[in-house]
Nucleic acid binder design. Structure first.
Length: 208
DNA sequence: TTGGCGATTGGCT
DNA sequence: GCCAATCGCCAAT
């Protein structure tokens, strides 16, 4: 059976609220197109950085770096973290309002060999598990900042109709402000989700 | 002009 | 689990 056709998401399909979008994007597909070849992966983990979030890059207003977060929803915001790792975000609010969804992990779908080459490993599970890793695998850098993800250009968002079964939430990874908020979303029991195992278990009730 | 600080990763103990 | 690498950003000087 051939894989289902991947259709580009339209801007109208995207929820115009950061947290709703972060959940909506789980199960959707990131496609990287170099013209002669292509690679893609299914989104299995996201984090929401919504309006008024002190952990979000948009919190202090627009700057040269973060201006893409203030575009209409569905545009790429790409930045370098720690001087070593590039991060892919999807702008998530109306034009003029800053918000974004960080894509934290993908399940590799196509173009596996390209991603293996770019990552210097053939360990399938490590190819796109983690935001810096998936950006490296897909050759995503600041040149793609501001790219329209709702158009079939070098980088776009698609769907093959697949729906994720169970979405779980946790604290976000690697931040200190608003750290308790449950704004990280991931597909339950998916091996390509990043983060420590204890973050990826179902919520447990506190002992009495 | 400068210095502190990350939405991480990979290597080593 | 701990920690160094590495560098662009930006608030404050």
């Amino acid at each position: 059976m051939r894989p289902a056709k991947v259709r580009c998401l339209t801007r109208a399909q995207l929820p115009s609220d950061t947290i709703t979008l972060a959940r909506y994007l789980l199960g959707k597909i990131v496609v990287r197109d170099w013209g002669t070849e292509q690679a893609s992966g299914r989104i299995v983990e996201t984090e929401a950085y919504n309006i008024g979030d002190p952990a979000g890059h948009a919190y202090r207003g627009m700057t040269p770096r973060n201006r893409s977060l203030f575009l209409d929803r569905g545009y790429a915001y790409v930045y370098l973290a720690y001087g070593t790792s590039l991060m892919l975000n999807v702008s998530s609010e109306k034009a003029g309002i800053g918000g974004g969804v960080l894509i934290r992990a993908l399940e590799p779908l196509t173009g596996i060999e390209i991603m293996e080459r770019r990552r210097g490993t053939t360990k399938r599970r490590d190819l796109t598990r983690g935001p810096g890793r998936l950006a490296a695998a897909l050759d995503i850098d600041r040149r793609l900042d501001g790219d329209d993800l709702c158009a079939e250009g070098p980088l776009w968002l698609g769907s093959d109709g697949e729906r994720v079964k169970t979405i779980r939430a946790s604290r976000r990874i690697g931040i200190s402000r608003a750290a308790h908020r449950l704004l990280r979303f991931y597909v339950a029991d998916n091996p390509f989700v990043s983060g420590a195992a204890r973050l990826n278990r179902p919520p447990t009730r506190r002992a009495p």
